[in-house]
Design a protein around this nucleic acid. Structure first.
Lengths: 207, 207
DNA sequence: AGATGTGAAATTCTTCACAGCG
DNA sequence: CGCTGTGAAGAATTTCACATCT
């Protein structure tokens, strides 16, 4: 399963299924999943076909089973994350997302500020950037978050990659260059704002 | 220009062009723009064709002119934003992004907490949620940011839409339902982490 | 020679439409 | 009957390849 879009939808389906489990619902139809993901019922069926999960023509899909199937695609292991750059944004992420979900944990954070190194910042211990490689293998970290200023983002990306990390979430307002086997998600707030603004205007003008 | 992908690339081109202007560069080739956006030179040429901008076969594209052309597509006006939910995440966004870029401004924020209402929080005045509609039209706000807990996100979205907003950035970990003419960008940190993790593993296993 | 601009092909993604099951 | 599973059609996106310009 190599398409980003299908994985994004799987994650949405998973959220919907979790919610339905809480509600005590047992079965769900493709058109219901479609609504939650703002897609179409046939696309949902295609996606589940790709997953290798079959439903029942009378009752739809079994919610528990389907969720298990998606979970197994995504692998249930805890995701260990390293966050580099404990400035305002980094701290906000540490504060907001530490311990919010059991599925992943920001196992370590890194900075060059001597004041911060050695401290615990919202449950994550702060290490010296020079120790990145060691800590990454020691703690089995597989995802890196970049929250340093634009000027140093590329160099941090290089260090993460050298430490063996293949997945990066980059909040710095600059595109980082990486080898093709590294997956990067750029979250550039400024560009998101412009994009949303652009399409909001389109709606207004297109009557 | 109705495709999200092409607009996303335009924003990347724009960033690259701005940087090159700072460097004093005058002309740029399609393959250089392609590298910065991790796309291909032919895709860049297609995009610029769609923009209606022509280059020169000897010297490539004029950076200033091309940037102006992209700016005019995106419309140069200041983007006024309303942020709803001044909790940890909301505050972090206010702190981090207020005054970072001249292109947009978080003109007002909203909460239901009496303590916060009337205060200035990192340059944004906090209003009572009940005043949303008035403030939105008074301040010509076109983009809404949702940073409330999942439970209230849908109801906030409804209020934003009722106030006439057609573009929403939703940080709450839930999919909000909106009419088709409202553009929503969901930034669900948890799902981003899972997605990045998934593709990082793919790289590791695919030799 | 080395770039752009662009039909045409290729690929990827989504919807259509309907057979067949329960 | 209404829903799933799916071949086939249709759209959207990207790449190919090459004529053309300078």
């Amino acid at each position: 399963m190599k398409s980003v879009k299908i994985i994004e939808r799987m994650l949405i389906y998973k959220d919907t299924l979790s919610k339905q489990i809480e509600n005590g619902k047992k079965q769900i139809f493709s058109h219901e999943l479609a609504e939650s993901a703002s897609s179409s019922s046939s696309l949902v069926r295609r996606d589940l076909m790709a997953l290798g999960y079959s439903g029942n023509q009378k009752k739809g899909y079994n919610i528990e089973e389907l969720k298990k199937k998606i979970d197994s695609l995504l692998s249930g292991k805890t995701i260990n994350i390293a966050l580099v750059g404990v400035g305002n944004l980094g701290k906000a992420i540490l504060r907001y997302y530490s311990n919010l979900y059991p599925r992943y944990v920001i196992s370590a954070c890194f900075d060059i500020d001597k004041e911060k190194i050695g401290q615990f910042i919202f449950h994550s211990k702060c290490y010296n950037l020079d120790d990145l490689k060691n800590i990454v293998s020691e703690k089995d970290i597989s995802v890196g978050i970049i929250t340093v200023p634009a000027e140093s983002a590329q160099q941090i990306a290089d260090k993460l990659i050298e430490a063996g990390i293949k997945g990066i979430i980059n909040f710095a307002p600059i595109r980082i260059k990486t080898p093709k086997d590294v997956f990067v998600e750029h979250i550039d707030f400024s560009n998101v704002v412009e994009k949303v603004f652009y399409f909001s205007k389109l709606s207004k003008s297109n009557k």
